[in-house]
Design a protein around this nucleic acid. Structure first.
Lengths: 192, 192
DNA sequence: CTCGAAATGGACACGCTGTCCACTTCTCTT
DNA sequence: AAGAGAAGTGGACAGCGTGTCCATTTCGAG
């Protein structure tokens, strides 16, 4: 996409992302300011705003590459997460594929909650390209399972993956494994 | 609770709540500032802060009374929302009771989304007393239905009632009735 | 009516945002 | 290798919202 990028520009972009990553991980991601990031990256405010209009877009930039990996695995990877049948045995059922999806998402959340929380909570989530992707994937699974209103069902099924909620679960002592187990049970009963 | 409240204090509290209600309903609830509310209510900033530390607590105060009504119906009202069996026929199943709960919640959301959105999105939601109540109720239903991890299940089942998500659904054209239908299907398959 | 307590309101200091533009640094061209 | 124009930079600035503080006003009990 970028025709070319000047050497200093590239250097600064890298600095900004590295500094932001660290700040988000360090404390309350919601409390990180654009000024903090500029200071930590050693660049001026103007430089920062040139590329990123707000904190959310920086967190999103950091998340993008991680999300792309999972999207790739969903589109072209081995089952039950991806469409390829396991080397032996029958193809995965929609319920199994949804459970695998949940597991991958929880892994992503677990590793990067701070980034998700830095990327603005609430409504913003539904506007991202990534959400549209997850939604489409889940919608197809629901559809394949014969659910009546797969469009709405997809949003219902994605709701438990809201970063706020996940954070809360972790805070009250729920382990990632336990959360995945609960989600898998849901997948099994709802699509099974 | 308030031993007594001076006449002028009571008058101002009422003004503040009325003004806030109107402002939240008028435009973007997230954009309403404490200053706006003070201005609209015709009181000073100090007066406002004396009672409410932030916008969220004002929205919460407005919601409290509406939420209490439903809590009452759940605790002591007729089935399937409440515990009393319908006048004739068998007692409601957990799935039916959950469906009724969803219906009541969507009704609440539909009427007061603007207040919920004014009450800070995200993490704040889980800290409210109301959330604890809903959670406990749903937990018991899940437990009665033999769900393995009712604590976590309760949070999963409440996730689709997040105000942000509901707002989004309405914006993309999903009617309250349709949303209730999708939720009821979920209740039926998961607890049924 | 008087007096102490409660309540009020607006000025203030502070922090964050987003923009603007004079200056610096790069890279292409010859 | 040097010059020129484009791309990038950084920090000052104006604006806005927050939360506090306290001199003044208003209430209501006696």
């Amino acid at each position: 996409m970028p025709e070319k990028e000047r050497a200093d520009a590239a250097r600064n972009r890298a600095r900004v992302l590295a500094a932001a990553e660290e700040l988000f991980a360090a404390g309350d991601p919601g409390a990180v300011t654009m000024d903090d990031i500029a200071k930590a990256a050693g660049v001026g405010r103007g430089t920062l705003y040139r590329r990123y209009p707000d904190r959310a877009s920086i967190a999103q930039a950091l998340l993008d590459e991680h999300e792309r990996v999972i999207q790739e695995r969903i589109l072209r990877g081995p089952g039950p997460l991806g469409p390829e049948p396991a080397s032996s045995g029958p193809a995965a059922t929609p319920a199994e594929r949804l459970a695998a999806f949940y597991e991958a998402q929880v892994e992503l959340l677990e590793r990067h909650v701070h980034l998700y929380l830095g990327a603005e909570v609430g409504a913003a989530r539904y506007a991202t390209g990534a959400y549209a992707f997850w939604r489409q994937h889940v919608r197809l699974l629901a559809s394949a399972a014969g659910i009546a209103d797969p469009d709405t069902a997809a949003d219902l099924l994605l709701a438990p993956l809201a970063p706020d909620l996940y954070r809360r679960q972790r805070d009250i002592g729920v382990t990632p494994e336990r959360y995945v187990r609960a989600l898998s049970a849901l997948a099994g009963k709802y699509l099974g």
